[in-house]
Design a protein around this nucleic acid. Structure first.
Lengths: 204, 204
DNA sequence: AAATAGTTTAATCAAATGATTAACGCGCAA
DNA sequence: TTGCGCGTTAATCATTTGATTAAACTATTT
């Protein structure tokens, strides 16, 4: 048996795959070790505990999802373009990481303390929203859009982007969509959601 | 120790609570037995296996969520009123059963075969959608609404209704909302989503 | 070559957990 | 009262699983 110099990295990659598909409680260290082609003890040798390893994966996943919105929201463009950019960026991120929403939502629901312990700097995320909030207010004053609570708009946009990924198995089942067709549908939603949102808020 | 004639019912209620809050893999038969104030063996005596008991809870939960849309969609009212009714009914159901979306989405994601085995009559759910689809087509022909793919509209409405329940812990954390305030917010969303959708599709 | 430090393995532990069993008890019909 | 059947309990089993240990192996240094 030859030495595997990349054991540490292999374990992280295996953990990412196993945790994200199975969730914390269904995933086992044996799953991860097997996926990484490594002895079980190696997992503990490099990462101490299952919980420890999970925290690494979770934090990484959470930041992937959050940072995707940060960039778009901070850019210096008009509201409608900003909305379009947010939606496009976010759905692109989700297409690249389709299992993340489920993973995040699950684990936070079953262990809300984790997020509070790990991410104490929620101001960063909050600030992102405030920036968008100002943009909305300005357009409202200008009279180009209807009055709308920024939180509602924010929730609506996120909902329409993320939910089809969360409920993918259900929609596929009900509408008898194939995997590739569902992929196309998600791709098309970038444009559809953007138009939907702009129509919803634009004064006419 | 006196006899507990309602053991069978107590177990179901306990199972509902434990499975829905913890999920299948995190829930244990001991949890359920304890919650029901019953010996562990009783759980197996009445329901054979953990899986069996889970299936009962899952099916019940799934039907609760689905049937909530069925009624509203089949009613004989104009499209805009129908949309309003669907949203109101659905959010009411979700307020009464806030943990169901998470439960359903989780379990289906981790075990998609379950839904296919249990609910073979997907035509029923599909038909509901077709009814709504016709309404949309009629209004489009009349020229009262913009052209929109019925599936997209359906997805958008469901997304905006359900996602705030799924992501509740995250939103509460980011925006520092209290439990009761978040409750008010969800209540308000009935009206907000209805207006948002109608503005999005109405021609003007 | 010998020593040292880092890496890897097989074996094992202890706790948790789904499930089963044998015995017990309670109510009721014969 | 006796005996039968359903409900209930405590004890136990077998497996899974997170974690640990001691030994072995490898590479590098001296």
């Amino acid at each position: 048996m030859e030495k595997n110099k990349d054991a540490e990295k292999d374990i992280i990659e295996a953990a990412r795959k196993v945790f994200i598909t199975k969730g914390f409680s269904s995933a086992t260290t044996r799953d991860i070790a097997k996926e990484a082609n490594v002895n079980i003890a190696m997992v503990h040798y490099y990462y101490r505990s299952k919980e420890n390893l999970f925290d690494i994966i979770f934090e990484e996943a959470f930041k992937t999802l959050i940072s995707s919105i940060l960039d778009a929201t901070n850019s210096n463009i008009a509201l409608f373009e900003k909305i379009e950019l947010i939606i496009h960026n976010y759905i692109n991120t989700l297409i690249s990481n389709p299992y993340l929403p489920n993973f995040i939502v699950n684990e936070i629901t079953q262990n809300p303390e984790r997020i509070e312990k790990k991410f104490k700097d929620k101001d960063i995320y909050n600030k992102v929203f405030k920036r968008l909030s100002e943009d909305i207010e300005n357009e409202t004053i200008k009279g180009t859009i209807r009055e709308i609570n920024p939180i509602s708009l924010f929730m609506n946009i996120l909902s329409m982007c993320i939910f089809p990924f969360l409920a993918k198995p259900i929609f596929k089942w009900v509408f008898e969509f194939g995997e590739s067709y569902y992929g196309e549908l998600l791709e098309e939603r970038k444009k559809i959601i953007t138009e939907f949102v702009i129509n919803a808020i634009k004064k006419c």
